Each structure stands twice: as C-alpha cells, then as structure tokens.
Simulated scan of single mutants.
Amino acid sequence: MIPDELDLRHLDAPEPMLRALDAANRLAPGEAVAIVAPRLPRPLLMELAHLGFDAEPEAPRADGSVRVVIRRPCNAETAA
C-alpha cells in the first residue's frame, strides 16, 4: 500500500518533476510515494534511476496519464 499519492497532472513543467523529486528525496529507506503524471515522465524516470531510486510506471490510463510508484531502496546510501 502506498499511503501518499501526488496528482501532478494540473501543473506546468517543470513543476511536476520538481515536486516528484522533492517527494522522493523526503522518503526514508524502504518508503514509497506514488505520483500521477499527465504522461509517461521519461526525464523523471531517468533522473530517479541516476539518483538510485526505484520507479515503477503503471500502464497509461484512458486519459494518457501515468501513475508511477517511487521507492527509496532500503540500502539508501545510493539514493540521496
């Protein structure tokens, strides 16, 4: 279960990416947050991978939006 979900569909760029990265950086090891983006956020996924986070996008919804679950690994030395 993911307790937090941020709906970023109504925001203009670059605000969705900034808010998603901020939420990810606030996670404790083993925690997760879900975001809903207006479309598949490829630049965000690349940046999260670079920072050491796990990010799992779900299949696009009927409106084209995508839910992504972001997790900070338990061995969080790589995610900062």
Rank of each mutant, 00 (worst) to 15 (best):
I2F: 01
I2Y: 04
D4E: 15
E5T: 15
L6H: 14
H10M: 07
H10D: 15
H10I: 04
L11V: 05
D12F: 00
A13G: 00
P14Y: 03
P14G: 03
E15R: 12
P16Y: 06
L21F: 09
L21H: 09
D22Y: 08
D22K: 12
A24Q: 11
A24P: 11
N25Q: 14
R26C: 06
R26N: 14
R26M: 09
L27P: 07
A28I: 00
P29Q: 04
E31V: 00
E31F: 02
A32H: 11
V33R: 05
I35D: 02
V36R: 15
A37V: 01
A37Y: 11
A37Q: 05
P38N: 10
P41W: 01
P41F: 02
P41K: 02
P41A: 13
R42V: 15
P43T: 03
L45F: 01
M46Q: 12
E47C: 05
A49T: 13
L51K: 14
F53R: 08
D54E: 15
A55D: 03
P57D: 12
P57T: 13
E58G: 13
P60F: 00
A62Q: 13
D63M: 05
S65V: 07
S65P: 08
R67K: 15
R67S: 09
V68C: 03
V69R: 13
V69A: 01
I70R: 06
I70H: 06
R72I: 08
A76K: 00
E77M: 04
A79G: 05
A79R: 07
